[in-house]
Each structure stands twice: as C-alpha cells, then as structure tokens.
Design a binder for these strands. Sequence first.
DNA 1: GTCCAGGATACTG
DNA 2: CAGTATCATGGA
Length: 297
Amino acid sequence: MFMKLIEIPLPQIFDWEAMKAYLSQHSLELLHPREEDWFYRWLNTGNESSLFRSTVDTQMNLIQIEVLHSSGVNNEEKIITEFVNEWWDLNRDLKSFYKIAKEDHLLAPLVEKSQGLRIGGIPDLWECAAWAIVGQQVNLSFAATLKNRLIQQFGEKIEWEGLEIWQFPSAEKIASLQPEELRPLAISQRKAEYLIGFSNMIVSGEIDKEKLRGFASAEEASQQLKKIRGIGKWSSNYILLRCLRYPDAFPLGDAALYNSVKKLLGMESKPTDDELLKLAENWEGWQAYATYHLWNA
DNA sequence: GTCCAGGATACTG
DNA sequence: CAGTATCATGGA
C-alpha cells in the first residue's frame, strides 16, 4: 500500500517504450529495479530518504508516482517530482529539435522511428560522474559490472516486499577510501584515483550542480569540468548531457557515436572527428539529442 | 591470440 | 609539440 500518489501530466511527445528500454538496458539495475512497468527508486532527501515507484499511464497521459515510504520532509512531493522531471527530461520542448532533425538526412529516419525519445538522465552529479569514469574505454557491460560492484560493496540497500532497492554509494563514503580498496573490484588504479578525487570535490563543495548550471553553452561548462583530474572532453560532455542536460553537449570521442554513424552511413571505416563535426553543424544547439538518437539507433 | 569497448593521462622524442 | 604506452576486463 502506498502513502501518497503523485501524478504528472505526460509531455505531448514522450516515448515510454524507449524510456523503459533505457532504464532496463543493464539486466541488473540496482538503483531502479523494475517490476512490471514500475521502476522503484530510493531517493535521499537530505538526512531522510523516500522510496517511490513510478510508471506511465499511456491511456490517461499521466506519469504516476507512488510514494511507498515517506521521508516526512514537507517538500518531499516537490523533491520527488523534480527528480522524475530531470530523470526523464519531461520539461524539454523538442519542437525545434524535430524541426532541424527532419531536415537532416542522418537524423530524419531516426526521429521518425523514435518520436518522443527523451534523454534518460542521471540527476545526481556524483553518481553521473562516477558512471562516466568507470565507463571510460571499457565496454558497457563491463562498466555496468563495475558500477554494480561499487554499489553492492559501498552503497546501501533496503527491501520492499522482497525487492531490493539500492542507493549509490555516497561521495562521503568513496572519499573515505584509498585507491587500493577499489582495486579488488577490478577498477584500475587510475580510475580509483579519479573516483576518490571527484568524490572529495563533491564533499568539499568545490564542485556542484549549481556551479555548472547557467553557462551559455556546453563548451563553457565543459571547460570547468575538464579541470578535474580524470574528466576529459568525453566525460565532461557526457556529464553535461546526462546530468546538467545541456542540449548542445556533444561527447566527441564516444566510441558508440562513431560506430553508429559508420553503420548508418554505410562507411568503410569510422568517421574522423572532422567528419563528425561536419555532420554536427546541422545539429547546432541539439547535439545532445542528436547523439542520443544515434545511440538509440 | 588479437582487437576493440560510451577515454584520460603520463611519458617520450 | 605530436605521437605512444598504459590501464582493466570481457566479448567478438
């Protein structure tokens, strides 16, 4: 039995099947386990925490959120609603993206097929950066394995009617570790240093979401992030795409991006950066959504 | 066995 | 300054 029901009107264009596919892509999703069409999430709200589950009612055009365990804080509903808004990018007006995408020979068939695809986000900056770091260079399934080991080793879990729901390890927890303590998880020495270094900057407040918001372009915000050890051009733009949601974030260097373009254009070899940037001239202002459609393809 | 994965940095000439 | 080596592991 749930304690409270929150309903959010569904944006006009929203592809629930695509969002479900993203949320379910790694077979073992500890942070938002799925049961039927419900996704469970255990959210920190300061010193307290809320457990909720959310789904989409496509008949009623509603997002439904059931609060299963309340934190008791008086702005809980607002916090959860804002989280889901960011998680599923509900407030994005995609009209101008579709306008340019329909004129683009690479994107046109993709947006036709995936109307309402919205970028699945990682609203927590620390969690997003950690995912970017463990995902550097290695294939996605191995990256997911590393993330799950981090969560199960250093995170916290609760159970709800037999279902386990985990919280990502806090920055404080990772900041308290030595790199050697992460090595047994098969995280490289370098990545262990990157993770601990980033977590320390979160703990000290040296970096936070507010400081990364409000830049006129992803490029400017990216320059801030790239000052951090372990965060290069790919990771900075990945974080801007998934967490800060700059629509013009463009993760140049992304292996999946090159492979997708190569396949879609029937190229002999992977496109060069110059070729990719040439294509991206048509996507000005919407590089993040163009990238996401290419990943999705 | 080799090559490549949603890269970034340290080192070398 | 640009190349190159290194890292971790697993799947193709």
